[in-house]
Design a protein around this nucleic acid. Structure first.
Length: 447
RNA sequence: GCGUAGGUGGCGGAGCGGUCAAUCGCAUCACACUGUAAAUGUGACGCCCUAUGGGCUACGUAGGUUCAAAUCCUACCCUACGCA
């Protein structure tokens, strides 16, 4: 019996660089196929890209899907996902997958809970940010940071769950995505520097524990794999064919296997903290093991984002992929890519779609607006997506006014196609040495 | 024809003498949404203006009582149900 010895969970290759900038284009090879980078990762929090089936996700051009640890842990439960054959098999998606660690929920259900604070704050002057008390014990929240982890009160049934970095790793190993993230604390730019420092230390300590636990789990998994008889089900991470799948299964890549762990850089809006974090996370090493890639996290004031990304990417090692977490407006994609980001994920294409806002090259439109009720043109005349090839604005408007489910689906198809495709076009522009022209041309019309 | 219950803003439906241009839901209109507490949320929604204020017209129609009426009284018109 012969088994491949897995050396690396992913293989990242840079094939073209953006001259004079940090930007680059290349590929990430995973056990479920190749991702051409830079790439936009479509969000499927609960193991489904809301309102879309995997064929629609694939046809819209998506290469990779990101699910969420916390949400899948609560429902249906990571053990259940494992029993269903892992994330890929469960959701019938045979392309590459990622899982976020639950670190964002520390923020969204904690400090940001009920405050209308989000991933990106629309503040014209970041100096106007008012530091607020970070330890306000009276503020209602569903996530509270404890000694060595976070206590979550389930938004589903009120039950209490304690998530540690180790627990996040165990859950993510059960889910079985190709690329997983370290457990971190996403902070708000409203927090003062004292808190940012404290949170950053915590994120670093959690990163180390994540890394350690990840490799402990890897050892257990590889030893159980070596005892596997040929008749048994292959372990997660290995390629196995799914004859019932509508999408033809992609061949696994020789020598790849297991899960890649991405460390997350935080540090808020402080240059010193961002750089310190980038250095610590990139150099972090536990028993000879380091991170396979990096995430850049945090809630930003819009203007802070590009500087923060640049500070960090100047320090992160060039040879590993970088993921800008939760970011995804068109202008942000250009900004991220020229500053060395390889992967983005964002809920906007699907959330905006479901809420009736559609991307077009001339900017976003609200399909519920009066002017579209009798507009028989497609959303975009030259768009190649299923929605634009088959339906009019008037019909989509009608579906939304009538609260028909298909409205959200058609809108999501278009928006995912728009954003995924925009990143693809940016990628092409890098290869064709016309990134700057394309950026200027696009943003001028988009506004 | 008799009896009963009603007629309130685009619709449904609160209010039953002053704090009512009138709670609420729906519809409508506009806006927001960035590692999904989200097929969600916020605001506007009689007309006009020199607009965190002011004026006008409104609760079936016409009168009346009262300092004051969507709210009380009278007549009429209309609707639903029941009985002839």
């Amino acid at each position: 019996m012969c088994y491949i010895i897995f050396v690396n969970p992913i293989k990242f290759t840079i094939t073209k660089k953006l001259e004079g900038k940090l930007g680059r284009a290349g590929t990430i090879e995973t056990n479920h196929g190749v991702i051409e980078t830079p790439a936009f990762v479509v969000v499927g929090t609960k193991g489904t890209v809301k309102s879309l089936n995997p064929e629609q996700v694939r046809d819209a051009g998506a290469q990779v899907v990101l699910a969420n640890t916390y949400h899948l842990y609560l429902q249906p439960g990571d053990e259940t996902v494992k029993k269903m054959g892992g994330l890929n098999k469960m959701m019938n998606w045979n392309g590459p997958t990622m899982t976020d660690s639950g670190g964002f929920q520390v923020f969204s259900l904690g400090a940001a809970y009920g405050k209308g604070i989000s991933k990106v704050l629309q503040i014209t002057d970041p100096s106007l940010l008012i530091p607020e008390r970070f330890d306000d014990p009276l503020a209602p929240r569903l996530a509270k940071i404890g000694q060595d982890g976070v206590s979550f009160t389930s938004h589903l049934d009120g039950s209490v769950h304690y998530i540690t970095p180790e627990k996040s790793m165990q859950i993510q190993h059960n889910l079985g995505a190709d690329m997983i993230f370290a457990f971190d604390e996403c902070t708000s730019p409203n927090e003062d520097i004292r808190y940012q420092e404290e949170a950053l230390d915590r994120t670093h300590s959690w990163a180390e524990r994540s890394l350690k636990e990840h490799h402990r789990l890897n050892e257990i998994e590889s030893s159980s794999r070596s005892h596997l008889s040929p008749s048994q089900t292959p372990p997660q991470g290995e390629t196995f064919s799914r004859s019932n799948s509508v999408i033809p299964a992609q061949a696994g890549i020789q020598g790849l296997g297991g899960q890649a762990l991405f460390g997350i850089v935080q540090g808020g809006r402080e240059e010193g903290l961002r750089k310190k974090s980038a250095k610590i996370i990139s150099e972090m090493n536990v028993e000879g093991k380091s991170f396979d890639g990096f995430g850049i996290g945090g809630s930003f004031a819009k203007e802070d984002m590009s500087t923060a990304v640049k500070w960090v990417n100047e320090i992160l090692p060039e040879e590993k992929p970088r993921h800008l977490l939760g970011i995804g407006e068109p202008e942000d994609l250009f900004m991220g890519i020229e500053n060395g980001i390889d992967l983005f994920d964002c809920v906007l294409p699907t959330r905006l779609g479901r809420n009736g806002t559609l991307y077009t090259k001339e900017g976003k439109i609200h399909i519920m607006n009066n002017t579209y009720r009798e507009d028989i043109r497609p959303l975009e005349s030259d768009c190649e997506c299923y929605t634009c090839k088959n339906y009019s604005r008037a019909y989509i408007s009608h579906l939304f006014h009538g609260k028909e489910m298909l409205g959200g689906t058609l809108a999501s198809i278009h928006n995912v196609h728009f954003i995924v495709n925009l990143v693809k076009k940016i990628r092409e522009s890098i290869f064709e040495d016309r990134f700057e022209e394309f950026k200027k041309e696009f943003l001028e019309i988009y506004k």
